[in-house]
Computed example of a mutant assay.
Amino acid sequence: MTGVRQRSTERVAARAAALDLEGAAIVVGAAALVVGAIVSLPFFWGRSLPIAGPGSLSQFAALTAGVVGIAAYVVARLWHRDALTPFGGRADRPSEAPAARRSLTGPALFDTVVIALAHGIIAVLGWLVLGAILADGFQDATVYAVSATVLAGVAVGFSAYVIFLSGARMDLMRLSTVLAVFAAFGILAAMLSAPDPHWWEYHLSALGMTKSVSSLTFNLTLIVAGLMMAAIARYATDLTGVDPAVRPARMRVRVCLILIGLLLAGVGLFPLNVSQILHNGSAVGMLVAFSLLVFWVRRALPEAPRSFFLLGYVLFGVIVLAAVFFVTGYYVLTATELIAGVAVFAWLTVFLRVSGAAARG
């Protein structure tokens, strides 16, 4: 009877906490809506704006939503907490957190800033893409100032609401989704806005070689995604309560994750036209680190399901096969790079989710 009563009390407390969080998110979203409308009104007054393109409604709403979204994420990380932290529950102090999560509750300003920046960029790219789609659906349509102000405010408010909830509930499993969405949005946006529609005839790195917004988007996506991976490496390989025999393997996995993150950032930081040696060296080094990671992770995470290890071996084989096809002339370089990139990100996303599930246990 005591156990049933305790579980009932826990469910009531969890529901109250969830409603409390939703209420706070609504307040943050409403405040962001007002801010977005107030900021946009002077820019829109007396004008009829295009839906997409330079000086458009979607462009202004996207930039404002990105800035406000970053602030909303930081506010969410401070929700019921003493310090900026990328993960953790509602405990105010590390000593009050569950033992399995205690290592995730320390101050981590850099981690929080990087993940907040990723949320802001997702908001920017999301509204820009939506604006482009709507512009195609409403050819040559314009939006009056008052309507544009309301729409911009709603876009900013909705972004702040969603990002606040994401930040307040952030853990490894949710972060895996953020990382995947961020990378997908960034690369797709760079592809769609590339000044040369036939960039794919060369290689994937051609997206980052021009002085266009497309190249800026491509390189910035790689840099931020790499910093995110490097920042969360220690949380994905938490050593709290780990068997001493497993610690060395987990540390090797941590080093590989950090290397993958830094080398991915290096690919974006050094475009092919800036330094071919540093660019190619970063790309090859990232694949080498990933290959080691696939074969080392079994000892570092022995509780993971066998299907996870099998997935790693299969994806490694796919990358090798794609490389063989390229060497024999069957694949172009772009196809090989895309296959390798998708395989690496897919495995890393699943790894974060498996690590998160193991930590919850």
Results as ranks from 00 to 15, higher is better:
L130G: 02
A132I: 12
A135Y: 05
D136W: 07
D136M: 15
D140M: 11
V143S: 03
Y144C: 05
A145D: 01
V146N: 05
T149M: 10
T149Q: 09
L151G: 02
A152H: 04
V154P: 01
V154A: 11
V154D: 00
F164Q: 00
S166F: 04
A168Y: 03
A168C: 06
M170I: 08
M173S: 04
R174Y: 00
S176P: 03
T177H: 03
V178Y: 01
L179T: 08
F182Y: 11
A183I: 12
A184H: 02
A184G: 04
F185K: 00
L188A: 13
A189R: 02
M191P: 09
S193V: 12
A194T: 05
A194R: 05
P195S: 09
D196P: 13
P197Q: 13
P197C: 14
Y202K: 14
S205D: 07
A206E: 06
A206P: 05
L207K: 05
T210F: 11
V213H: 05
V213S: 04
T217W: 03
F218V: 13
N219E: 02
N219L: 06
M228L: 10
M229A: 08
A230M: 05
A231E: 01
A231W: 00
L239Y: 07
M251D: 11
M251I: 15
R252L: 14
R252I: 11
